[in-house]
Amino acid sequence: MKIAFSPCPNDTFIYHAWVHGLLPGAPELEVTYADIDITNKLAQGSDGPDILKISYGALPWVSDEYALLPCGGALGRGCGPLVLTSGRNDITNNPASLAGRRVAVPSERSTAYLLFRLWAAQNIPGGIGEIVVMPFDQIMPAVRDGLIDAGLVIHEARFTYPEYGLSLMTDLGSWWEEDTQLPIPLGAIIARKSLDLTRISQWIRDSIEYAWAHPNVSQQYILQHSQELSPEVAQAHIDLYVNEFSANLGNDGYNAIKALLNRAYEEGIIPKTDFDSLLWQG
């Protein structure tokens, strides 16, 4: 069975047990490790993996062959994307100073991007000048070096951005939570509708439960794929992004997903999403 997810600590922590054959009865996995912008594109075609991790912001473009699973992804509170600046080019902590400027984002089909656009519509008169898509690990160096006026960052960047001498303009997760009282929908797990989604969901939950019961077993695997993160930063990443929503989206999770995509549709950022076709709740 083919699966694609990111090399980030939350994903490798969740899927370690299944990837390493530690779940009785679960099929062997052939893993592709890829940045979220790549997996978002894989979800659009008919020849993508059986299971893959994508951004919730990419759900409107998912192939009809896939369904959203209720587990294995990333939602939470206090874990949203950040808008960072360096103080160069007359950029201040006032969001209005980004009007007409260049902002780097990790993907235009990501939750981070949708949150940024929704926030910018309320806070940046005149709008952003140019959106530049680049791999998330290149964004902070580009902002630091003045190549970009501001950067939208995700993942472990929320722990490491001070090392680049950058300043926080806004935490989009905090803005979203204050505005909606809902968690932040970040990464989704989708699987082919032709597969046994009940069993796949159970294998994912079993892998999560194994990870929680044996938190140290996966450390070498996690650090191998975590792009030179320290063990402390990798653990902070896991603690933040692997939570009760990883095991079960629940009502709050589904409401958060619908609120995000409906707002983005109303703002004209994305096409309308066919939830009835996409959702599978088992």
Results as ranks from 00 to 15, higher is better:
residue 136 F to Y: 13
residue 136 F to L: 11
residue 137 D to P: 05
residue 137 D to A: 11
residue 139 I to F: 07
residue 139 I to R: 05
residue 140 M to S: 11
residue 141 P to E: 08
residue 142 A to N: 04
residue 143 V to E: 03
residue 144 R to E: 14
residue 144 R to Q: 15
residue 144 R to H: 12
residue 145 D to G: 10
residue 146 G to S: 04
residue 147 L to T: 05
residue 148 I to G: 03
residue 152 L to P: 04
residue 152 L to H: 03
residue 153 V to E: 09
residue 153 V to A: 07
residue 155 H to I: 03
residue 156 E to C: 09
residue 156 E to P: 00
residue 159 F to V: 03
residue 161 Y to N: 03
residue 161 Y to E: 05
residue 162 P to F: 06
residue 163 E to M: 13
residue 163 E to P: 04
residue 164 Y to S: 09
residue 166 L to P: 04
residue 167 S to A: 12
residue 167 S to F: 13
residue 169 M to G: 03
residue 170 T to Y: 07
residue 172 L to Q: 07
residue 172 L to C: 10
residue 173 G to Q: 09
residue 173 G to L: 07
residue 174 S to G: 09
residue 174 S to A: 14
residue 176 W to D: 08
residue 176 W to L: 10
residue 177 E to L: 08
residue 177 E to D: 10
residue 178 E to F: 01
residue 179 D to R: 14
residue 180 T to N: 09
residue 180 T to I: 08
residue 180 T to E: 06
residue 180 T to Y: 08
residue 181 Q to Y: 10
residue 182 L to E: 09
residue 182 L to F: 09
residue 182 L to R: 07
residue 183 P to M: 08
residue 184 I to P: 02
residue 185 P to S: 10
residue 188 A to I: 06
residue 188 A to G: 05
residue 193 K to D: 02
residue 193 K to E: 10
residue 194 S to N: 11
residue 195 L to W: 04
residue 195 L to I: 00
residue 196 D to T: 00
residue 197 L to W: 01
residue 198 T to K: 12
residue 201 S to V: 00
residue 203 W to V: 01
residue 203 W to N: 08
residue 203 W to L: 08
residue 204 I to R: 01
residue 205 R to T: 05
residue 208 I to C: 07
residue 209 E to H: 13
residue 212 W to M: 11
residue 213 A to I: 00
residue 214 H to D: 06
residue 215 P to E: 11
residue 215 P to K: 09
residue 219 Q to E: 15
residue 221 Y to S: 01
residue 221 Y to W: 15
residue 222 I to R: 01
residue 223 L to P: 02
residue 223 L to E: 07
residue 224 Q to G: 00
residue 225 H to T: 01
residue 227 Q to A: 13
residue 228 E to W: 12
residue 231 P to S: 04
residue 233 V to R: 11
residue 235 Q to K: 14
residue 236 A to S: 15
residue 236 A to Q: 15
residue 237 H to S: 15
residue 237 H to A: 10
residue 240 L to Q: 10
residue 240 L to K: 13
